Amino acid sequence: MTSARHDRPLLALAIRLGGVMGLSIMAALIKLASTRGIHLAEIIFWRQFITVPILLVWAWFAGQGVGRERLRLLATKRPRDHAMRGVYGMIGMVFNFGAVILLPLAEATTINFSAPIWAVILSIVFLKEKVGIWRWGAVLAGFAGILVIAQPGDGHIPLFGAAVAMAGAFMIALISIQIRDLSRTENPMAIVFWFAMMSSVCSLPFMLFVAKAHAPLDWLILLGTGLAGTWGQLMITAALRYGKVSSVIVMDYSAIVWATLFGWLLFAVLPPITTLFGAPLVIAAGIIIAWRERVVRRAPFTDQRGTAGT
């Protein structure tokens, strides 16, 4: 598998690009659902619940043997870790879906790109990792870009919405640590499946208070949210079978193109000049961080001061 992954970098990039498109479509449909009066809790439930039967059917036909043996791809020996992933993931969805609802799509997407910046900070706090001038510079540039986009005090975008988006990016960074740990022993499909199961169960009680009858178009939007989200999640994960994270992550920034396009087509909103200036700073910060992470992994014998791996 390792050699196949290295031999097919273009395929990895194409798959990742398709996954980003799927998640971008999901974000646009979430915002569209909100404008039609569908509650955030209901959007979260249907987004996750729709994933469960899709993966059950997929695992059944992809598996071998008879009976429950065909679902072996979804088996796990770490239910507690998946439960914790479900809790963190639910919190992350509230913030990230909330950001899409509160902010224009382009701004919500760009602030979402600050996840690598938070990952650097988390690595310092929890992993006691030494970070040098390159990554510190990227962190500062990224936050400067967010300030340019948010323009505190001018009312271009609500500061509460910007704060929600920042919290969502922080949760993405935190969850990525969990997923990295789960990936050591778990099949990618199992990680997605158990997250969908856990979050569906957690969000189900809220449906008693927010669920209501919908028009056929509303149901199509909710269905599309679940299908696009599942498609995006699986393709984002599948890309890592053919390319390294540091190589394919650059495709994630194509989301700003989709966000701008959908914002214009569905909501007649184009990003202002401040976003056009701030977005490159945030994107450049993420690319620099990914590049330095790759350099660090290639130089394991650096001196104890951490000068070569910063």
Rank of each mutant, 00 (worst) to 15 (best):
L261M: 09
G89F: 00
D252M: 03
G22H: 05
L265R: 04
I256L: 13
T274P: 00
I236L: 15
I221H: 04
S114M: 11
P300C: 06
T2D: 15
W136V: 12
G142A: 07
G18M: 10
P152V: 11
M198W: 14
R8E: 06
P205E: 00
T274C: 01
G224I: 02
T51I: 10
R16H: 09
V100Y: 06
S34M: 06
L281W: 03
W258E: 00
I15V: 15
T225Y: 03
A28V: 04
P272F: 02
G153H: 03
A141Q: 02
H39D: 15
V125T: 11
G243F: 04
V66R: 15
F170W: 08
P9F: 09
A41G: 08
F206E: 00
A259V: 00
K31N: 02
I273F: 04
M166G: 05
P152N: 08
L55D: 09
R241A: 13
N187H: 15
I149M: 10
V269R: 00
M197W: 13
M251H: 02
M21I: 04
Q48H: 12
Q151K: 14
I249E: 07
L265M: 11
T185S: 14
T225R: 01
M197Q: 09
H6Y: 15
M251I: 01
L222N: 07
L276F: 07
R36K: 09
L234Y: 07
T260Q: 00
A290P: 02
F97D: 05
E293N: 10
I289P: 02
W258F: 03
R297T: 06
A259M: 01
L103A: 04
F193A: 08
L222A: 09
I124N: 05
M90H: 05
F95V: 09
F49C: 10
T307Q: 13
V210N: 10
P300W: 01
F193G: 06
L102S: 10
F277G: 01
V282K: 00
Q233R: 14
A27W: 05
K128Q: 14
P205L: 09
V131P: 08
S247E: 10
M235R: 09
V201Y: 07
F170N: 02
S34F: 14
W136S: 11
H82A: 03
S247T: 15
P272I: 03
V282W: 01
I172G: 06
M207C: 12
G142C: 08
F195H: 12
F97W: 06
M189F: 13
Q64D: 13
T225L: 13
L240K: 13
F95A: 13
H156T: 13
K212Q: 14
R297W: 04
F126W: 14
A173L: 10
V295H: 06
D218Q: 15
S34Y: 13
L217E: 15
A167G: 11
A165P: 05
I256Y: 03
G278A: 07
V100M: 10
R68C: 04
V250L: 11
A213V: 13
L234C: 11
R70C: 09
L11E: 08
W60P: 02
L270R: 08
P216G: 06
G137V: 05
L266D: 00
T260E: 01
V125I: 15
V201C: 07
R135S: 11
